[in-house]
Amino acid sequence: MANDISFTIDGVEVAAAPGQTIIEAAEAAGIYIPRLCHKPGLEPFGGCRVCTVKSNGRPCSACTQPVAPGMVVENDTEELRALRRDLVELLFVEGNHFCMFCEKSGHCELQALAYRFGIAAPRFDYTWPARQVDMSHPDILVDHNRCILCGRCVRTSRQVDGKNVFQFVGRGHEKRLAVNAEADLGATDAAVTDAAVGACPVGALLKKRIGFATPVGRRPYDERPIGTDIETAAARKE
């Protein structure tokens, strides 16, 4: 499809194809919009709100909003940076995130966003919710302490794996991730080869017996901030 829609992000002219969302068009143009629940290839969810931008002055999630000709998008502004910082800090106090012994540390997108935003500590009080760990599956573990309810496993299981292993239950602050079985993950048809296992941005869904395979210093976000790949891919094309 022709890139015949023209709009601006922070004053920069961006060409997009009809039907693209703001986040897709931005990514193709080498502009990184921070995100957690968005994953290319999955249906947009608009759950985490980290990708909130202003489109013609109104806030919207860049992963769900389609582009329109002449649209004026604000992305990297002080106001939106502050909002995204708040969201990430709230996610840290809402769950139980012990980075120091988490296998996902250095690979975790939530942690990487905190690093990119320069968050040294959340300003909000910790809530220390009581959450469960599900070790019932022989090859996969679910640690609800770390779950940020992005729904990436829910959508990947359904849309990529062709299964329906995960689902949300509850409403509001009682919303949580559940599995499609009477008991626990071990009673589902989840397999360690499912794409859903790798779709988790945090350490809530992990393959067992991997541990701390990559040494500190060589993990994806040790040296390079999250989003650098998007920003440099476009620079290489120029």
Binding site: F92, N96, H97, F98, C99, M100, F101, A120, A121, P122, Y126, W128, A130, R131, N145
Partner: peptide, 18 residues
């Protein structure tokens, strides 16, 4: 200055908060 994860977020001792 809070130095380290225990000072900034409770750290390992805060596991008992669960």
């Amino acid at each position: 200055v809070s130095v380290g994860d225990c000072a900034t977020m409770g750290g390992i001792p805060a596991l008992r908060n669960l």
